[in-house]
């Protein structure tokens, strides 16, 4: 565990907490893509199956359980408790366009042709693009509340920090995982445009509004 990895995990945790608090405090999930949240739930469930097979550390197990639980809670709030506030019409990204290519890619490019390994690989590929329905929703409505921007910034920073972690681990431990690195780079690139808007607008107290 190095500082980049820890910062990445904490950023990920912060993002999830911000999202849950936003929905809970405002009693609304307006501006949040339920489809991205469904994809994240699939990511956690397919990746953290190893909770049952491999013990790594208490930290590792607790974080996995927290991510799965928080993801389930988010889906419950969006699709059950505050369903009336869900932005159906704008959340129109077709997730099969992400799911199917990720399944195919995981079957072709993986470390090992076993069920666990393919599910892990699928979850890595899917995570890299899971934010697209959310970014699509923001681009459709043309704006995002500040709290939603903070959520997206924390969530995007997490994988960017993991990239630093992988560089560090490559140098310090000669450890690397090409699938994770490739997907992590793609994931971070998808946030770049948002990062730019966040830094130039939201941090200066302005609302995140896309140019018309």
């Amino acid at each position: 565990m190095n500082i980049f990895r820890l910062a990445g995990d904490l950023s990920h945790l912060l993002a999830i907490i911000i999202l849950l608090l936003k929905i809970w405090k405002t009693r609304s999930c307006a501006g949040i893509s339920g489809k991205s949240q469904v994809l994240f739930a699939i990511v956690y469930l397919t990746r953290y199956l190893d909770l049952f097979t491999t013990y790594i550390s208490l930290y590792n197990s607790i974080m996995k359980i927290v991510f799965i639980a928080a993801s389930g809670a988010t889906l419950y709030l969006m699709y059950v408790k505050f369903k009336a506030t869900y932005d159906h019409n704008h959340d129109s990204f077709r997730i099969e366009f992400l799911l199917i290519p990720c399944v195919i890619l995981a079957l072709i490019i993986n470390h090992d042709f076993t069920v666990m390994e393919i599910l892990w690989t699928f979850s890595i590929y899917l995570e890299s693009v899971a934010i697209l329905p959310q970014l699509f929703l923001v681009s459709k409505t043309g704006e995002a509340e500040s709290i939603t921007s903070h959520y997206l910034f924390a969530l995007g920073s997490y994988r960017a920090l993991y990239l630093l972690n992988w560089i560090y681990r490559y140098m310090a431990e000669s450890h690397y995982d090409l699938i994770a690195i490739f997907a992590g780079v793609v994931q971070t690139i998808l946030y770049c445009d948002f990062f730019y808007l966040y830094i130039t607008k939201v941090l200066k107290g302005k609302k995140l509004q896309l140019p018309a």
């Binding site: 590792n60 390994e117 993991y162």
Partner: peptide
């Protein structure tokens, strides 16, 4: 350098 696939990350 050998690629390691041990999944100790989240």
């Amino acid at each position: 350098v050998k690629e390691c696939t041990k999944k100790d990350e989240l």
